[in-house]
Simulated scan of single mutants.
Amino acid sequence: MNIFVRSVTLACVLGAALTACGAPGTPRAARPEPVPATASGPPTLAPGPAGVTPVFRNAPRTGDRTVALTFDADMTADQGPRAAAGERFDNPRLVATLRRLRVPATVFMTGRWAEEYPAQARSIGSDPLFEVANHSYSHHAFTADCYGLPTIPGARMRADVERAFDAFRRVGVRRVMPYFRFPGGCYDRRALRALSAAGVTAVQWDVVSGDAFATDADAVARDVLDGVRPGSVVVMHCTRSAAPATERAVRAVVPRLRERGYRFVRVSELIGASHRRPTLVP
Rank of each mutant, 00 (worst) to 15 (best):
M1L: 14
N2M: 10
N2I: 13
F4R: 14
C12I: 00
G15V: 05
A17I: 13
L18R: 09
A20W: 06
A20C: 05
C21N: 00
P24Q: 04
G25H: 01
G25C: 07
A29H: 07
E33M: 14
P36Q: 10
A39W: 04
S40G: 14
G41L: 06
P42C: 04
P43I: 03
A46C: 04
A46V: 12
P47R: 08
P47F: 11
P47E: 08
P49N: 02
G51Y: 04
R57I: 04
R57S: 14
A59S: 12
A59G: 14
V67G: 03
F71W: 12
D74I: 13
M75I: 05
A77T: 13
D78M: 06
D78H: 14
D78W: 14
A83E: 09
A85G: 05
E87I: 12
F89E: 09
N91T: 06
N91D: 15
N91M: 11
P92M: 13
P92G: 11
V95D: 12
L98H: 12
R99D: 11
V103T: 14
V103H: 08
P104I: 11
T106K: 11
V107A: 09
G111T: 06
R112I: 00
P118H: 09
P118T: 11
R122L: 00
R122C: 01
L129W: 05
F130Y: 04
E131N: 01
A133H: 08
N134K: 03
S136V: 11
H140T: 13
A141F: 08
A141W: 01
Y147F: 06
G148T: 11
I152L: 15
P153W: 12
G154H: 10
G154P: 01
M157C: 06
A159M: 11
D160N: 11
D160V: 03
R163M: 10
F168W: 03
R169K: 12
R169F: 09
V171S: 06
V173T: 09
V173C: 02
R175Q: 10
F180T: 01
R181I: 03
F182I: 08
P183K: 09
G184S: 08
G185E: 03
R190N: 15
S196H: 13
A198L: 11
V200Q: 08
A202I: 07
V203P: 12
Q204D: 14
W205N: 09
W205E: 02
D206F: 07
V207L: 06
S209P: 03
G210V: 02
G210A: 08
A212D: 07
F213D: 12
D216W: 02
D226I: 03
G227H: 00
V228M: 07
P230Q: 11
G231N: 01
G231Y: 09
G231E: 10
S232I: 03
V234T: 05
V235Y: 03
V235E: 12
H237T: 07
R240N: 05
S241Y: 15
T246K: 03
V250P: 01
R251M: 02
A252Y: 00
R258N: 02
E259D: 02
E259R: 11
V265F: 00
L270Y: 05
G272D: 08
A273F: 10
S274E: 13
H275Y: 15
H275W: 14
P282E: 15
